[in-house]
Simulated assay, not measured.
Amino acid sequence: MAADEATRRRKLTVAVKDALRDLNIELSLLNRRFGGQVELREVDFSCLDLINRHGPMSPKELSRRAGLHPATLTGILDRLQNGGWIVRERDPESADRRAVTVRAVRERNSALYEVFSGMNNRMDALCADYTDDELTVIADFLRRTGGAGQQSADELAR
């Protein structure tokens, strides 16, 4: 009986991993199409999303969070600033007069919300099918999956 249970568990684990791979593909496709609508490259949108979610930060902090080389980030920030998505402001906390903070232009977010409204509505409908306890488990699983992905990316960066 234990062998049957182990086999069933392996099959379920493989099914979860396969579903995550499928999700990754679909979200990548969504992000590419989304980027085409608002004229943002995927990496540019990822950086903008980090700034929107975590608030103003230094380019060095953004580089670390995004896993990007600072020189690569400079071009991304230039494109975001030229598109009116972010501003670079002098960091008043720093003794170094060259230090800057990157801040999202919140007024531009309405363009993002409009393009993502279909996905947001579909996610609301999907979540409505689950109990609060089930949503708690799903949110925990997704957070832990994100953590596993971050750890794996950190390993690969070494």
Rank of each mutant, 00 (worst) to 15 (best):
D4G: 11
E5R: 10
T7M: 08
T7R: 10
R8Y: 08
R8S: 13
R8W: 07
R9W: 10
R9Y: 13
K11I: 03
K17W: 09
K17T: 12
D18H: 11
A19N: 09
N24Q: 09
N24H: 13
L27Y: 10
L27T: 11
L29C: 05
L30Q: 07
N31R: 15
N31S: 14
R32M: 08
R33I: 01
R33Y: 09
G35Y: 03
V38A: 12
L40N: 04
R41D: 13
V43C: 05
S46M: 11
D49N: 15
I51E: 07
I51V: 15
N52F: 15
R53W: 13
H54W: 12
M57E: 08
M57N: 03
S58M: 00
E61W: 00
L62T: 04
S63G: 15
S63N: 03
R64G: 05
R64M: 12
R65D: 02
L68R: 07
H69L: 04
H69K: 09
P70E: 14
T72L: 01
L73K: 00
T74M: 09
L77R: 04
L77E: 11
D78V: 11
L80T: 05
Q81Y: 04
Q81S: 15
N82G: 10
G83E: 08
G83S: 06
G83K: 10
G84S: 12
W85Y: 12
W85M: 07
R90T: 10
D91S: 07
P92N: 02
E93H: 08
E93R: 13
A95Y: 07
R97K: 12
R98P: 00
A99E: 01
A99L: 01
T101H: 11
T101S: 14
R103I: 05
A104V: 02
V105D: 03
S110N: 05
L112E: 07
Y113P: 00
Y113V: 05
E114V: 05
F116Y: 12
F116L: 15
F116R: 11
S117L: 06
M119P: 00
M119K: 05
M119I: 12
